[in-house]
Write a protein that binds this DNA or RNA. Sequence first.
DNA 1: CTCCACCGCTTGGCATGGCAAGCAGTCGGC
DNA 2: GCCGACTGCTTGCCATGCCAAGCGGTGGAG
Lengths: 121, 121
Amino acid sequence: MAAEANDPPHVLGAFIRTQRQMAKLSLRQLSALAEVSNPYLSQIERGLHEPSVRVLKAIADALNVSAETLFQQAGLVDDAEAPDDKATESAIRADPRLSEAQRQALLVVYRSYVGDTPAES
Amino acid sequence: MAAEANDPPHVLGAFIRTQRQMAKLSLRQLSALAEVSNPYLSQIERGLHEPSVRVLKAIADALNVSAETLFQQAGLVDDAEAPDDKATESAIRADPRLSEAQRQALLVVYRSYVGDTPAES
DNA sequence: CTCCACCGCTTGGCATGGCAAGCAGTCGGC
DNA sequence: GCCGACTGCTTGCCATGCCAAGCGGTGGAG
């Protein structure tokens, strides 16, 4: 009953490793960018440790991913929180710098990403 | 001269304490809700410790504030620059429903619309 | 083949996170 | 007066985060 996939640190580590490899970085390169030691990064990637906020942020920065994304992987947005589904859409709608056409285009793209059909409700 | 205000843990602690008092909760009550020990919560509020991700999330939950808000107080969102102009960009960055690739793509499109070059780092 | 540079991983140890137990102070009832 | 029940805080102590040093393995240059 290893249940690897349910282990939060394990999931986070796998995600980080994947991101690192996609960015074509070696473990040491990333560790240098994030200013953490290379052994510790290795341990994080293999799920042996749950990194602190500071380290998590540093890694997110070095990988050019948003910190929120990593926090999500770290298992902290599991249920009770309202994920604020509408936040992005609202922001796009309210943005004064967009023309109407641009606004519509952006919304279409965004909805296709999140799998939200305009809803014929 | 203890630069209290600049100490990330100190700021975070003060914020938590304020939120707790606004919610009319005693220290022990909040500690029970968040499932952390009351002495430790006391230490966090006074800036003596920097809580882990797990504890931070638990406290955010118990206080009914978004985890993101606490992370911001914890000093890990140095992107920050987001007055009015950046509302849309922030929303995209924070959106949990986007994959990293999608997030980047959306940002590129948005920036091309508003004529904003990445500018930073 | 030897050497050097890189890869990722293991090990020991110090610093910090986090808790159980116990402290002093305040308030209301007896 | 004395007593519980509440407030927040201090003090050991163990578990964990995090790093310096060193390991074996691979691949190209001499």
